[in-house]
Structure formats: C-alpha cells, structure tokens
Design a protein around this nucleic acid. Structure first.
Length: 413
DNA sequence: TGTCCACTGGAAGGGAGGGCTT
DNA sequence: AAGCCCTCCCTTCCAGTGGACA
C-alpha cells in the first residue's frame, strides 16, 4: 500500500517554506545594490502623488540588472504611498512588450485598465486603431488621475511596430483635460533611441537612467539574502554561493541567472538525496539550464524552422561540414517534400535562418566566396544529438526519423 | 580593373484569420 | 451579410555587395 509519491515525500527538503524567494518573479522587501536607482526613480515619480505629471523616464541596462524589479518595487511603494499621502488617484500600469508588442495590444491593455460598470471590454482584435485610441483616451480622462505606464522591453515594441504608438502615447497629454500620463520605458538596448523619431526621443527621454551590471560581489550579496529566506541553514557548502555569483558575473552580471542557478543547484542536490549542496551540484545545474533553454527554444520553433534544423542535425551527424544557404535550402526542400508540406521560398527561409541565429541555435556568418558568390555559412550551435532528441518529439519531424540526406551537396530540380 | 556569382535584406503587398460595424 | 480594420506569415521583386578570378 505504498503510494507512488511516498518515496518523494519522505525525502528531506533543503528548502525552507519560502522557496519562492528563489523564483524570478519574487519581489524582495529590499533590493540590494539598487538603493540609488530606487531613490532616483522615486524622486522622479513622487510628483504623481501631488497629482502632477512626472517626467517620462527611459531606463537602460542588460538583462538581470534589476530594472524590472526596481520598477515593480516602485510601483508597489507608490500604490502604498498614494493610499496614505496621495492627493490624487494613481494608476500604475506595467506592460511587457515582449508579449504586448503591437500598437493595438498596447492601447487595448491600457484601455481595459479603466473599465466602468457599463464600459465594454476592448476585444483583443477587431477595432480600428483610432477608435481604440479615442476610447482609451476618454476612459483615462474620465478616470481623472495620474497614469504611469511602464513599457518593459520597449525596444521590442519599437523594432516590431515602429515608434508611432510611442508618439501617440507621449502626445496623449496634449489632448487630456483631467488626467495626466507619463511613460517609463525599459530597454535592454542602449542604442534603442536611435530607432526613434527625434520628437518621440526628446519626449520620452526627459529622464534617463542606466543600470550597470552587478559584479560578482554584489551578486553574492543578493544570493545570500535570497538564500537566507529560501534555503535551510547549513544546507549550502560554503563556496556554492560564491560559485553561482562568479558564473553569473561572467555572463554580464545577470542576477536572474544567478538566482536560477542557485535554485536549480539546490534542486539537483535534493533529487540526489544529498544533505548539502556542493559545487558539483552547481555545475550540474549550469549544464541543465543550458540544455533546458536549448530544448525549449527548439520545441517552440515553427515547423519549417525545425526542418531546417533537422537538415543541420543530419548533416552534423554524418560528419559533414557547414552548409551554405543554397545547400541548406535545397535539402530542406527534399525533406518538406517527403512529409508533403509545401516548401517556403528562399527569401522566407533566409529570415528563419536569421531568427535561429539570433536564438543561438545556429551560427550563420556572412561569407564571400568571391567569384563563387556571397552567402551565409551555417552550422549548428548546439549538440546535434540533443537537438535531434527534441526535434523528434514533433510528430511531423518524427516521420523523417530514418531519412538520409543525399551525399552530394548541390541538388538541382 | 572590371566582372559576376549567390546570395542578402529592404519594400511592398497579398490573403487568411481574428473580430467589429452597419 | 457585406464591408472594415489589424496582425501574422508569406511571396514577389529587386537593388546591393565582398571578393576570387580573368
């Protein structure tokens, strides 16, 4: 009568009851080594408490430098302060432009934050932009307060949809009578303002902040704080935190990575039934994280990209060298024919190749062969056997399980 | 020195799919 | 039902290009 969960339940845990402190969305009570940034942003946004419009702010910094944490922290504090001291109503809207990445969805999300009983929800598609803009504007104005809109990963929005929406938002104040809005943009890319029209640029960057990466010592502090909440005393070997910090510091001081690394190290130790997390577990965790990232990236690829990747996998597997765009394309056409999927054009494939290059799944370098043309030379950037395992999970790809690529490289149709 | 290959990557636009408006 | 709008995924078209070769 043993329950299948029993052997797992019995196992002693190395976490305390607050392991959430090691999850990415955890917002701590204090943000170590970001005191100045918090203060500076608070100084800018404090005017909202008097019902005045704060300056627009642009925040720059690499991933994991605490931008999002600082902004969410400020949001929480601001709401608290508004209840106590506020003379005006404050709405703090956080949008991540990774997902909210079109003018339509930005306005839709904002507009739906201000719904009265009889207001209808703006649908996620269908309305003309003008109508959404007007609706959002009217609702904001009727609400009568200060609206702070945080656009995280604002560079994604601009690179995808242009800066028109930012122009509209930045100029919404000109047509608002009762409410005021200000924009806090967060970008990983310092050069992102180059994409902006001069008028938008000057409006948005009334204030600028740059978040420097954490160094190893600072990451150590952060990890210590989190570990003291989430992990049992004496469960960590003494060098574990230092090692996690050092590894993350090498990868441009990404705190999120450091925290993930620590959490997964503990999980690895737990799974082994170890009583203590050691450096070995950290290395295991590092390996696991890297492979999981790759697997997830491959899994979510569209079919045609998977086919392209499969060509590269099969090519690697049979010990052949790099492929050019033309070679890759002709082999891709063979595979798509085999599973009765109509092949995309070379132009489109060229974009898919660039996408996978950006994802880090492949390396595609432009190379000129002089008289013999100019093309990308493409190779797999991940272990072929790992990639193959994940690719075969796809039912279409699985049909190609035992396919062999023709030996000759050039193929004509 | 000019030619010319094998693409690259920008621009424009089609059409399917979501949904609203009249 | 017909006519719109917005987004996504693609196609078509095409000017542009680094560098080996004649």
């Amino acid at each position: 009568m043993t329950n299948i969960f029993e052997k797992h339940i019995r196992k002693a845990t190395l976490f305390t009851a607050h392991r959430e402190a090691l999850y990415p969305n955890y917002l701590p009570d204090i943000l170590p080594h970001r005191e100045e940034e918090v203060d500076r942003l608070a100084e800018i946004l404090v005017t909202s408490l008097y019902g005045e419009k704060p300056s627009n702010v642009l925040i720059f910094g690499k991933t994991g430098t605490g931008k999002t944490a600082v902004v969410q922290y400020i949001g929480r504090e601001l709401r608290g302060a508004a209840e106590v001291y506020g003379k005006a109503k404050i709405k703090y809207i956080y949008l991540n432009c990774e997902t909210v990445d079109t003018p339509y969805s930005v306005l839709q999300n904002i507009g739906n934050q201000f719904i009265d009983n009889n207001d209808e929800k703006i649908p996620f598609t269908g309305w003309p932009i003008d109508k959404i803009f007007t609706t959002a504007k009217e609702r904001i104005d009727k609400w009568n307060g200060v609206v702070i809109i945080v656009l995280d990963e604002i560079d994604k929005l601009v690179s995808k949809s242009g800066d028109d929406i930012l122009y509209k938002l930045a100029h919404m104040n000109d047509v608002l009578e009762n409410s005021k809005i200000s924009i806090v943009g967060i970008s990983n890319e310092l050069r992102f303002t180059e994409l902006l029209d001069a008028r938008v640029k000057s409006r948005l960057s009334e204030e600028k902040m740059i978040f420097a990466p954490y160094n190893a010592k600072q990451l150590e502090d952060i990890l210590e704080k989190r570990a003291s909440i989430a992990i049992k005393k004496d469960a960590l070997d003494e060098d574990v935190i230092r090692l996690c910090a050092a590894i993350a510091a090498q990868e441009h001081g990404d705190a999120r990575r450091a925290i993930d690394l620590l959490r997964i190290s503990v999980e690895m130790a737990e799974r082994e039934g170890a009583e203590m997390v050691t450096e070995r577990h950290v290395y295991l965790a590092k390996n696991k994280i890297e492979l999981d990232c790759v697997a997830e990236a491959i899994r979510t690829l569209p079919l045609h990209s998977k086919l392209l990747l499969l060509v590269l996998v099969l090519n690697d597997e049979s010990g052949r060298e790099n492929l050019t765009t033309g070679e890759l394309y002709s082999m891709y056409k063979i595979l798509s024919k085999k599973i009765a999927v109509s092949a995309l054009t070379q132009r489109r494939i060229s974009d898919l190749i660039t996408e996978m290059d950006t994802l880090g799944l492949i390396n595609a370098n432009l190379h000129s062969f002089g008289r013999y043309g100019r093309t990308k030379v493409i190779e797999l950037a991940v272990p072929w056997n790992e990639a193959k395992k994940v690719l075969l999970e796809d039912e279409y790809i699985a049909e190609l399980r035992s396919v062999n690529l023709p030996n000759q490289k050039k193929l004509t149709f």
